[in-house]
């Protein structure tokens, strides 16, 4: 593989919705020159096995991520607050998938 394109082309994050009613899920990233091409390439790279009915692509540079070093203060305080989980309710069957 030649490498210049990888240097020049931005990285895109790919989200695929697997079927009607479910949300788009992050499934990976790829290099592409622009958004239209990123969509095409996402189709070929990530939906070859009938995985999707809809694709989103987002420039990776537009994602602001939490700092792994802040993991402790961000997430650990929630670990002993089990009352925040909606596990104390019975969900009626008619509600279906949540």
């Amino acid at each position: 593989m030649n490498t210049p394109a990888l240097k020049d082309w931005p990285l895109w994050e790919v989200f695929v919705r697997s079927k009607q009613g479910l949300e788009h899920k992050h499934c990976g990233s790829l290099h592409a020159a622009d958004a239209a091409q990123a969509l095409h390439m996402a189709r070929d790279v990530y939906t070859r096995r009938q995985e999707g009915v809809s694709i989103w692509v987002v420039p990776s540079s537009q994602i602001t991520a939490s700092n792994p070093d802040d993991k402790g203060e961000l997430f650990d305080p929630a670990s002993d607050k089990i009352y925040r989980h909606p596990t104390f309710y019975e969900i009626p069957d008619e509600v279906g998938h949540m």
Binding site: M1, L30, H31, A32, H40, M41, R48
Partner: peptide
Amino acid sequence: HGPILEEDIALAN
């Protein structure tokens, strides 16, 4: 042997 990985897969498709 494609010019980049993504295009290699596209052409194989």
